[in-house]
């Protein structure tokens, strides 16, 4: 036991660093009423209609981002795997570009290019939402790329495609009924990360939509005005993150080291 003293010490310190803020947040969120523990802060959170509306908005954006990323990446990657192997490093490189452009810089570039004449697409609500969607797709690109690529690598793509074609299937049928079901689990992995990124994303939403439309800017705004509600929301969003990670673990994939997301 004594021989294991140092390893236990390091792990304990790590666990302490990890849990202390979470524990403190939980206790803090219950202290909205003076002197007793209560769920008052949670009641107030749920009573604010903007909590629900911003969460629903961000959830919708997340699902849309996942769908559009799949629409863009699955056909592209399938073709690369089947016919254009030489182009693969190029696309792989492009998918890593989001790592070198911090989201503040990216949204700055968007405002520079798209928010002024001749394009001015941020003048309409639809245009702004479209731009936000594109931004989210860029932020989640490395993760979606990696998971779809891993999925396609793991199956015998050529045989599946040739078998489908010899049975008379067109490309649409092949994508929807053969390729997608076979890479579903791998794609799910990237989808969860994308979901977490979009729900927690502050920068893009803050500078394209302003405060309080999307979830994270709304949170940041309440954080400045209130004391206990932010803690309550943090506990709620942490529970959700835990849920997502648990599902990922159940899917049998280890969480890998990544640096994008809602920092």
């Amino acid at each position: 036991m004594l021989r294991r003293f140092w390893p236990w010490l390091w792990v304990s310190l790590g666990v302490l660093y990890f849990f202390l803020p979470i524990y403190a947040t939980f206790v803090f969120s219950l202290k909205a009423k003076k002197g007793i523990f209560s769920l008052l802060a949670y009641d107030k959170v749920f009573a604010d209609p903007r909590f629900g509306s911003s969460f629903v908005f961000s959830t919708q954006m997340a699902l849309l981002t996942i769908f559009c990323c799949m629409l863009l990446l699955i056909p592209t990657l399938t073709v690369l795997h089947l016919f254009l192997r030489r182009l693969r490093p190029v696309v792989e490189f492009v998918a890593l570009v989001p790592f070198v452009i911090p989201s503040v810089v990216l949204v700055f570039g968007y405002l520079r290019v798209f928010a002024r004449p001749p394009l001015s697409i941020t003048n309409s609500t639809l245009g702004t939402y479209g731009l936000l969607l594109a931004g989210y797709m860029v932020l989640s690109m490395p993760y979606m790329y990696r998971s779809i690529d891993a999925g396609l690598r793991a199956i015998d793509l050529r045989t599946l495609v040739e078998a489908s074609q010899s049975l008379g299937a067109g490309w649409l049928t092949i994508f929807v009924r053969v390729i997608f079901p076979n890479i579903r689990v791998a794609v799910l992995n990237g989808s969860f990360v994308t979901f977490a990124i979009v729900i927690g994303e502050l920068t893009m939403a803050r500078f394209l939509l302003g405060n309080a439309v999307a979830f994270a800017p709304y949170l940041a705004e309440i954080g400045r005005a209130r004391a206990y509600e932010p803690a309550a929301i943090t506990v709620l969003s942490l529970l959700m993150t835990w849920g997502i990670v648990m599902i990922l673990q159940l899917l049998g994939r280890n969480t890998s080291a990544t640096i994008a997301g809602p920092r």
Binding site: P21, L202, P230, T241, V245, T255, G261
Partner: peptide, 24 residues
């Protein structure tokens, strides 16, 4: 357990993390 924690904590950033430390 530690690897799972690390997966969560390395993604636990942004606004909620700031709030957690304000509460701490």
């Amino acid at each position: 357990a530690i690897l799972t924690f690390s997966g969560v904590a390395s993604n636990f950033a942004g606004v909620p993390l700031a709030f957690a430390f304000v509460a701490t």
